[in-house]
Amino acid sequence: MKTTDSLYDTSHQFARHPSDFFYVSADGARLDGLITLTDFLRAQGKGVPPETPLALFMTKDPAMLAAMDTVLIASSSSFREHGYKVLPVVVDKASRRIVGIIRVRKLIARILAVVPPPTGLTNRPQMSG
């Protein structure tokens, strides 16, 4: 979506596409922000007028990964620390040219496949007394 698209346009996009976020880019290539379903519902809840441009209620300068990054530790920290469910991936952080996204679910599924969680998290809690 473009930064100049309105709240009304956003509602139509969410209605038409089964996605929980859209990239926002002024020129169609550089990542300027993300508009998530949460951002959209929050704006609706605050009574933002339908003609308000997306730039005013999107997530600006979101955390992102560069495609050349090979280490995933930073992404896992971001997922945990900020509660992100997706992280955009760009070619590099200077150009911010959008490549795609990674999802926390996919990452967790792979981690759990190779690392079992601590026993305390899988055992049934003991009742005291």
Binding site: T70, V71, I73, I101
Partner: peptide
Amino acid sequence: TWQERPAVLAALRGFSLKEFIEQRRSRC
């Protein structure tokens, strides 16, 4: 804190970011 214990860190080091990227579409 279990989420970032050494076993998880070791697993993350073994993964490549490219394996997880969902390529951009015009509308996600």
